[in-house]
Simulated scan of single mutants.
Amino acid sequence: MIKFRYICLSVAACAIVTLSSCSSGTPTAENSPAPNNVNPATKTTHTGSHSGHSSNKKVNINTAILSELDKFEGQLGVPALSHKIQASRPYGSPEDLVTKKVITQEQFDKIKDQVTIEEVVLTGEAKDVDYMTKLGLMKGHLIVAQELLDKNQPKQAEPHIGHPVEEIYVDVEDQIKERKVKEFKTTLISLQDLVKAKPKDAKVKTDLTSSIQAVDGAIAALSETERTNPSFVLQVMNGLLDAANSEYGAAIANGKVSAAIEYQDSRGFVVYANDLYKGISSQVAKKNPTAHKAIETNMAELLKVWPSVTPPAKPVKTPEEVTKLVTTIEQESQKVVDASSTQAQKS
């Protein structure tokens, strides 16, 4: 069984990297820094906005966190592959996955177009989208934690409280400093320690609210203009939906929800993505009514997949059906992004 994951986002100029999932179990690893002996010539800089989602988005196997690597675990059906890839770093080339016997040549051939050792440095809008998406993933985790606490299930809530600090914060920490946002890692750690030691303490819910407010404060470091720009928000929203899609796929096995934490995390990401869309829906409806209708309809259908924070006995939809809904939303969203880009070029 997959031990633990979180969702993070690496964004290139023309793509938002597909993310995957968090799962049950005790955390065993965190994001690894880039290996010192990776050739600096492999570093590239990407600026500006994104222009779509594709199945060929590349993941840097030297620097990707477990959740990014998790997509390969799902594709190849190899248990704990994320951890195996991480443990065998650094890689001088993607082919080292085979040389180091992490996967077979046959398995590598299935994912070779999706892996790289190239480091991506984000700037401009791409960096801002990456920043808000990571914070959005934190928010999704905490939303689920709050739901579980409201149901008096602190033990189930604890992993969702732990993942933001154990897995995501490290990837956004530099940006938090750059943007002069007050650090809130201490707040997250204190909350996690409290829920572990005194899960029934009334202070748990108060501290959780403080943690959510801290994440919102970090998001507020972005300009209001950007945070209310449909093109920008849709890119963040689609990153969250990519994450949810991967998580949901990892949660379902043999027609059942086999990993409750992954099910719950995917719910949290979709709920927050939907909240984000509500904030821009009137703007999208005014300028792109057809795209808005399609996004709204498919989002409503997508939300039905998670009727409760507690997994249903039988999944409402198959992973394939969820992927279809997410893909449709992304495609329609991209039409809005592209239209906005064209309009900006004309102005």
Score class of each variant (00 low, 15 high):
residue 124 G to C: 08
residue 49 S to H: 11
residue 268 G to R: 02
residue 109 D to W: 04
residue 52 G to L: 04
residue 65 I to H: 09
residue 47 T to K: 09
residue 200 K to G: 02
residue 280 I to Q: 08
residue 305 V to P: 03
residue 31 N to Y: 13
residue 347 S to W: 15
residue 102 V to T: 01
residue 124 G to I: 08
residue 118 E to R: 04
residue 250 A to R: 13
residue 244 A to D: 05
residue 211 S to L: 06
residue 340 S to I: 02
residue 246 S to N: 14
residue 10 S to M: 13
residue 288 N to A: 14
residue 226 E to Y: 13
residue 176 I to K: 05
residue 185 K to V: 10
residue 229 N to I: 07
residue 85 I to T: 01
residue 155 K to V: 09
residue 4 F to P: 00
residue 168 I to L: 06
residue 224 E to M: 00
residue 56 N to P: 01
residue 77 G to C: 08
residue 131 Y to M: 14
residue 144 V to Y: 03
residue 284 V to F: 10
residue 152 N to V: 12
residue 218 A to Q: 05
residue 344 A to L: 11
residue 50 H to M: 15
residue 138 M to N: 06
residue 95 E to T: 12
residue 200 K to E: 13
residue 91 Y to I: 07
residue 309 V to K: 03
residue 52 G to N: 03
residue 308 S to P: 04
residue 252 I to D: 02
residue 196 K to Y: 06
residue 345 Q to A: 15
residue 289 P to L: 11
residue 226 E to S: 13
residue 172 V to T: 14
residue 75 Q to H: 11
residue 210 S to Q: 14
residue 335 K to S: 12
residue 323 T to L: 15
residue 240 L to W: 00
residue 262 E to R: 08
residue 322 V to T: 06
residue 159 P to Y: 11
residue 290 T to Q: 14
residue 3 K to Q: 12
residue 116 T to C: 05
residue 337 V to P: 08
residue 224 E to H: 05
residue 63 T to C: 05
residue 41 A to Y: 14
residue 210 S to V: 13
residue 172 V to C: 09
residue 61 I to F: 01
residue 57 K to D: 13
residue 289 P to C: 12
residue 345 Q to S: 10
residue 334 Q to D: 10
residue 161 I to D: 01
residue 29 A to K: 10
residue 314 K to Q: 13
residue 105 Q to P: 08
residue 237 M to P: 01
residue 167 E to V: 03
residue 13 A to N: 14
residue 29 A to T: 06
residue 278 K to A: 13
residue 5 R to C: 12
residue 262 E to T: 04
residue 346 K to C: 07
residue 82 S to C: 12
residue 153 Q to H: 11
residue 337 V to A: 09
residue 339 A to P: 08
residue 302 L to T: 02
residue 175 Q to S: 07
residue 258 S to H: 03
residue 285 A to F: 04
residue 55 S to R: 15
residue 232 F to P: 03
residue 344 A to T: 15
residue 311 P to Q: 04
residue 34 A to D: 00
residue 218 A to N: 06
residue 140 G to M: 06
residue 230 P to K: 05
residue 200 K to F: 12
residue 298 N to S: 14
residue 100 K to I: 11
residue 316 V to I: 15
residue 71 K to W: 09
residue 323 T to D: 11
residue 29 A to M: 07
residue 217 G to F: 06
residue 53 H to M: 06
residue 142 L to W: 02
residue 252 I to K: 02
residue 227 R to P: 05
residue 222 L to R: 02
residue 263 Y to G: 00
residue 157 A to T: 01
residue 221 A to G: 00
residue 197 A to H: 00
residue 96 D to F: 03
residue 167 E to R: 08
residue 27 P to Q: 05
residue 158 E to Q: 10
residue 22 C to H: 11
residue 39 N to V: 13
residue 261 I to P: 01
residue 54 S to G: 13
residue 138 M to V: 11
residue 110 K to C: 07
residue 118 E to M: 08
residue 323 T to G: 11
residue 149 L to T: 07
residue 240 L to G: 00
residue 153 Q to L: 15
residue 102 V to F: 00
residue 276 L to F: 01
residue 108 F to E: 01
residue 227 R to A: 07
residue 16 I to G: 08
residue 161 I to M: 12
residue 50 H to L: 14
residue 25 G to V: 02
residue 50 H to I: 15
residue 74 G to K: 06
residue 97 L to S: 03
residue 77 G to K: 00
residue 168 I to D: 03
residue 157 A to M: 00
residue 343 Q to T: 12
residue 235 Q to G: 08
residue 267 R to C: 10
